[in-house]
Design a protein around this nucleic acid. Structure first.
Length: 439
RNA sequence: CGGGGAGUGGCGCAGCCUGGUAGCGCACCUGCUUUGGGAGCAGGGGGUCGCAGGUUCGAAUCCUGUCUCCCCGACCA
């Protein structure tokens, strides 16, 4: 993509409304613009990142055996009245009345809708287990939206729902998600720890929050230092096999958020306890028959009896993850994207557009990188070199290639690693080869 | 929802107290010079001062109402 044609409205100064670093950088890097409080438009650069994250989430869900569906954003109030949550949910639910006076709502979550789908079409124990996910925009009319997309009112969320015949099977469904989540966050270059979450009486030991470590995270967390060293299951993990040992390995180590941590009664010795700050990006929990019971989601068992479906639900804040990655990975100059979520892999800069030789070399390299399938953003604008360097640092592409007359005189271009700041001189051919080959 | 603050060109702000018809920096356009880490000079375009009432000869400025946004707290992916 040529930057001269790309819509990338970066800002030199930080808008006054932005407080946290991810919000500031997302505005400055031209990723988002606020539409109203807690509601944002995604501009090309931000959208690419959002889609990359979404794709990683989707890939790991599918790998774990879940199946993708898509439910609507607008729901009828009827189902919510049936489950008893229409009143309970309160003002956080955005209620809408259609032209016929029917009560509708912009879904804050989808338990009711999915339960309705399941009860209509799943009648036999032979149809279980099922695990269905969708990635859809939600709306919660937060009392106080803040921190940009970290805590917006409208947000993109992956949520899925498992349906099992009994609690043992439900536990396996739960464990699958547990493992899938570990893999998902790692694939985005994040360190995420599961923490036991209090979900009331139903969930028991089957409720965990996943927190991404970031210095600027909103809540303080404490965890056993061995957690750092725990391996994440590889691509060969068998989701049909016994996942309990993996889950046990993680859950046996102490990890707690600020509210739950009690220094006086902490089972871990002080020297073994690490602390940091975290951002909640995922939550998984088992809730048994909470919805299947009031809504009558039953299957017929082998003996002809009716059995209430055991359900679990699992969320990942997809749009929030964009901000979380930035919180976890930035410096004073801007964003530092992990390669897996970066909007472009390489930022190519023509430092002197009015120098025919320089422009020819940069154009040539751009064409060849593209032909080799490298996702590259090419700064071909008539700007000063300094402005180009600064902007590249701000938008945080993993690799920068600077093509200028000075280097070309010696037959080289400069390749810079955004994360480490390391710069190396390569011939254009070597630079091409470096990125054209596998990552 | 309680407490605080702010709405003036795309962004950051001054002007308001003490009314006289809007200004600065960045960004943008033109020209010249410059050119490897956000250049310099000159010229230029763009603003119903959130909105609605009121006071006044005259309102960005004073008064009343209203909307929006932000920050702190209680609540959340």
């Amino acid at each position: 993509m040529r930057l001269s044609r790309y819509f990338l409205p970066t800002l030199k100064e930080t808008p006054a409304e932005a407080e946290v670093v991810s919000h500031r950088l997302m505005l400055r890097a031209g990723m988002i613009r606020q539409a109203s409080s807690g509601i944002y438009s995604w501009l090309p650069l931000g959208l690419k990142v959002l889609q990359n994250i979404e794709e990683i989430v989707r890939r790991e869900q599918l790998r774990s055996g879940a199946q993708e569906i898509l439910m609507p954003t607008i729901q009828s109030a009827d189902l919510w009245i049936e489950s008893g949550r229409y009143e309970d949910y309160g003002a956080e639910m955005l209620r809408i009345t259609d032209r016929r006076g029917r009560e509708m709502l912009y879904g804050p979550t989808n338990e009711e809708l999915i339960t309705d789908i399941i009860r209509s079409d799943i009648k036999s124990y032979r149809d279980l287990p099922k695990n269905l996910f969708h990635i859809q925009w939600k709306f919660r009319d937060e009392i106080r939206p803040r921190f940009g997309v970290m805590r917006g009112r409208e947000f993109l969320m992956k949520d899925n729902y498992s349906f099992d015949l009994d609690e043992a099977a439900a536990r396996h469904s739960y464990n699958r998600m547990f493992v899938a989540y570990l893999r998902t966050f790692q694939a985005m270059g994040l360190r995420a720890f599961p923490m036991r979450a209090d979900s009331g009486p139903i969930g028991g030991d089957m409720s965990h929050e996943f927190l991404v470590l970031a210095e600027t995270g909103e809540s303080k967390v404490f965890f056993h230092k061995d957690m750092d060293a725990l391996a994440i299951p590889g691509d060969d993990v068998d989701y049909d096999g016994d996942l309990q040992p993996i889950v046990d390995q993680w859950t046996s180590l102490y990890a707690a958020s600020d509210e739950q941590h009690d220094a006086a009664n902490c089972p871990v010795a002080a020297e073994d306890l690490n602390s940091g700050r975290g951002i909640e990006v995922g939550h998984i929990f088992f809730f048994g028959t909470k919805y299947s019971k009031p809504m009558g989601a039953v299957v017929q068992g082998p003996g002809g009896d009716e059995i209430l479906v055991q359900m679990g639900s699992y969320g990942i804040g997809v749009s929030r993850l964009v901000a979380a990655v930035i919180e976890a990975s930035h410096d004073e100059n801007g964003i530092i994207w992990p390669e897996s979520v970066a909007p472009f892999r390489v930022g190519l800069m023509n430092l002197r557009i009015d120098d025919a030789g320089c422009t020819a070399a940069a154009d040539d390299l751009y064409g060849k990188l593209q032909a080799a399938g490298v996702d590259v953003l090419y700064d071909d604008r008539d700007e000063r070199a300094g402005a180009k360097f600064s902007r590249m640092d701000l938008i945080g592409l993993p690799w920068q290639i600077a093509v200028g007359p000075r280097g070309l005189k010696d037959g080289i271009v400069e390749v810079k690693n955004r994360a480490t700041g390391e710069r190396i001189d390569l011939s254009p051919e070597d630079a091409l080869a470096r990125f054209a080959t596998a990552k």
